[in-house]
Nucleic acid binder design. Structure first.
Length: 256
DNA sequence: ATGGCAGGAAGCTCCTGA
């Protein structure tokens, strides 16, 4: 089973790239973030025509998540239960006994801002909920845009980023809190090239200059991580014409 | 000196992203 996550930064703009990529990469499950569209205009027909079941939870302009799958999806839930939130950031599905959570963690804007406080509250609720999900679903995969670079190795210039949003101590502590539930960062289970990032700013030629962050992650429970055979960033997707500012992350598991 | 680029909604400029 091949699992992938990709922040598309507008599915309307990126749909042709997504369809081409599905045909070439043939993932079994794809978690999308920042679809930026209401459910009424979601391109479900095009995605189904490509051979995927799809569920989605979107809103106009901001946020929006979707999950694509080659096999039937069950137990579909949107949002974090018990955490009131207008923002469409979470979808959970069960596919062949594997629980898959698609998450778009808040950006946080700047350390100390209201949005930063919201991000930390959101992450606390997310952790609490994932703990209960894990109890029901030992085979749990949590994919998405975490908006956290877990360690300095995930930052092109740790000195310049020190203390900033996406790398601050409180955010990294929240990320470690997710791992402490019994989840592993599948990317770090394998040797990786230097400067392996998943996001590059559109400005300042950041991609060409390898000025990126690794903020999109695939976390796997202890029941799944031993089955993981590879995890990599699909960096060439960031080099396309009119790219998303994020590249997909893809993990392969020894599972159907 | 907080810029720079991209997308969306609105409307001929702004907010947000990370």
């Amino acid at each position: 089973m091949k699992l992938a996550t990709w922040n598309v930064n507008s599915l309307k703009v990126r749909l042709p790239q997504l369809l081409e990529w599905l045909g070439r990469e043939q993932p079994d499950v794809v978690c999308l973030q920042e679809t930026k569209m209401e459910d009424a205009v979601f391109p479900a027909a095009e995605i189904r025509a490509a051979g995927y079941e799809v569920v989605f939870s979107g809103q106009r302009t901001y946020n929006g998540v979707a999950v694509l799958s080659t096999a039937p999806l069950e137990e579909v839930t949107a949002g974090i239960p018990g955490f009131a939130d207008e923002q469409k950031r979470v979808l959970a599905v069960t596919r062949n006994g594997v629980r898959v959570v698609c998450a778009y963690v808040p950006n946080g804007q700047s350390v100390g801002s209201d949005k930063y406080e919201y991000k930390l509250r959101w992450l606390a609720a997310f952790r609490h909920w994932l703990g209960s999900e894990l109890a029901y679903h030992p085979r749990l995969a949590v994919l998405g845009d975490y908006n956290i670079a877990p360690a300095d190795a995930d930052v092109h210039d740790p000195k310049a980023w020190e203390g900033q949003v996406l790398v601050s101590d409180a955010e990294r502590e929240a990320f470690r809190g997710l791992l402490a539930l019994g989840l592993k960062d599948s990317f770090r289970q394998f040797d990786q090239p230097p400067a392996a990032f998943t996001w590059w700013d559109y400005r300042m030629n950041a991609f060409r200059r390898k000025m990126g962050l690794r903020i999109d992650h695939i976390l796997l429970s202890d029941a799944l991580s031993p089955l993981c055979q590879s995890c990599r960033v699909d960096t060439p997707m960031r080099a396309l014409e009119r790219p998303s500012d994020h590249a997909p992350v893809v993990a392969e598991l020894a599972l159907d």
